[in-house]
Amino acid sequence: MSFWRVILSIICPPLAVLDKGCGSILIVFILWCLGWIPGVIAALIILNNPNR
């Protein structure tokens, strides 16, 4: 997980997970719409997961 990905996930979480697949983008986008903090947390978890 690079420094720029972390910054991007704080600013706009759906953009940080663009290369992780449609499901990840959709989950992060919905959580981001419900609140900024859940979207950021979900994006950081998805980016930190080495299996995806």
Rank of each mutant, 00 (worst) to 15 (best):
F3T: 14
F3L: 15
W4E: 14
W4A: 09
W4N: 09
W4P: 12
R5T: 05
R5C: 07
R5H: 05
R5L: 04
R5M: 10
I7K: 11
I7H: 11
I7C: 07
I7D: 03
I7L: 13
L8K: 12
L8V: 10
L8M: 12
L8Y: 00
S9Q: 03
I10R: 09
I10H: 14
I10F: 12
I11R: 08
I11F: 13
C12M: 08
C12F: 15
C12G: 03
P13I: 00
P13S: 03
P13M: 03
P14I: 06
P14E: 06
L15F: 15
A16Q: 01
V17Q: 05
V17N: 14
V17H: 05
L18W: 12
L18Y: 08
D19C: 01
K20S: 00
K20E: 02
K20R: 15
K20H: 06
K20G: 02
G21Q: 05
G21V: 08
G21H: 07
C22V: 07
C22A: 08
C22G: 02
G23S: 01
S24V: 10
I25P: 07
I25N: 02
I25H: 08
L26A: 09
I27N: 13
V28M: 08
V28H: 08
F29V: 13
F29I: 12
I30P: 14
I30K: 09
I30M: 12
I30T: 15
L31H: 09
W32Y: 03
W32P: 01
W32L: 05
W32N: 09
W32C: 05
C33W: 04
G35Y: 03
G35F: 04
G35A: 08
W36C: 05
W36H: 04
W36F: 13
I37C: 10
I37M: 09
G39E: 00
G39Q: 00
G39S: 00
V40N: 00
V40D: 00
V40R: 04
I41M: 11
I41C: 10
A42L: 11
A42K: 05
A42S: 12
A42N: 05
A42C: 14
L44T: 05
I45K: 04
I46C: 03
I46K: 06
L47K: 01
L47M: 11
N48S: 15
N49F: 14
N49D: 14
N49I: 10
P50R: 12
P50M: 09
P50C: 10
N51W: 09
N51I: 11
N51D: 11
R52T: 14
